[in-house]
Write a protein that binds this DNA or RNA. Structure first.
Length: 295
DNA sequence: ACCCAGGCGGGCG
DNA sequence: CGCCCGCATGGG
């Protein structure tokens, strides 16, 4: 099998930073740090990719048939030099980019993204990952490779339609179990997520917010990581605090005002700025932005 | 014991 | 509109 592997070389790609940055892929995939192997379900099969090198010159090996899928999922065609130049509007953002250089946004299936971010609300990353894995392993369809069991395919909304609220509760979903039931029903009967593909950011976000359990923040996450709308700027507790610390002297601001600020400051790649600010804030428990402002 | 986590829906003024 | 509250669950 390894004889069939072919290599992709990418600049400014760091699998570790990407895999630690709490995106849907990192909730349903597995990454072996020791061996540099990423595996995740895609459609009715499993994708495997081998990583080596560093974020300056990253090398990804995979079967040729998987190359297009991997490039799509990991956004390998993003021009990071251009994006970094565009969002690097002050010393703090540039320092954060320097520290986590190579972290990419990922592009995930809209329904999977919707499930992940409904689970994410008022929750922490470790538990989000656990619940997502439980849902995948409990309700996913087994995938076999050359006759051997290889993993599970993420359940579609039609498949989750048959799942009672209690079962989601047993996966650890807590009060979000009700939202998962309602969202599956809504996306199976009232809103075809596939049909939103190609529409504008505003149109997509507006439609997504019709889904029960999806509000302003989760809709932005789905627009960004499920539809690739890079201007989307999800504002969670970490990003809110960081923006307030850095740019408003620690004063509380309304979400709507912060959206306006971010659009003005970061522009069409605001989603990337958000991912770097979020990751830095979360990993460092927000100490950096406080420290930065004090000097 | 208390606080927090990639928020949202509903109820109230 | 804006504001406030409850919401399950587990870890620090």
């Amino acid at each position: 099998m390894s004889a069939r592997l072919r290599e992709i070389r990418v600049r400014d790609f760091d699998i570790k930073h990407t895999f630690e940055s709490a995106q849907p892929l990192t909730f349903y995939a597995d990454y072996d740090y020791a061996d540099g192997v990423l595996t995740y379900p895609c459609g009715k099969g499993m994708i495997t990719a081998f990583f080596s090198g560093d974020s300056k010159n990253c090398s990804i090996s995979a079967e040729p048939e998987a190359h297009a899928e991997i490039a799509h999922r990991l956004r390998l065609d993003d021009n990071m030099q251009r994006i970094y130049r565009s969002i690097g509007t002050d010393r703090f953002v540039r320092a954060t980019i320097g520290k986590y250089r190579g972290m990419r946004l990922t592009l995930n299936e809209p329904w999977v993204t919707t499930v992940c971010f409904i689970i994410s609300q008022f929750n922490n990353v470790k538990r989000i990952t656990m619940i997502t894995h439980n849902i995948l392993n409990t309700f996913g369809t087994p995938i076999t490779y050359e006759g051997v069991s290889a993993g599970k395919a993420f359940p579609s909304c039609e498949e989750l339609l048959k799942v009672p609220e209690k079962k989601f509760g047993e996966c650890g979903a807590g009060f979000r179990a009700k939202y998962l039931v309602q969202a599956a029903d809504f996306c199976a009967h009232n809103l075809d997520l596939e049909k939103l593909e190609g529409r504008s950011y505003c149109s997509i976000k507006e439609q997504l917010m019709e889904i029960p359990g999806v509000g302003d923040k989760v809709a932005d996450c789905i627009a960004l990581m499920g539809y690739g709308k890079l201007e989307a700027f999800p504002i969670d507790v970490w990003v809110k605090r960081t923006l307030e610390n850095l740019y408003f002297r620690g004063n509380a601001k309304k979400i709507s005002d912060l959206h306006e600020f971010a659009e003005e400051k970061f522009g069409r790649y605001a989603g990337y700025a958000q991912q770097y600010l979020f990751h830095s804030s979360r990993i460092n428990k927000d100490r950096l932005s406080k420290h930065f402002v004090q000097r």
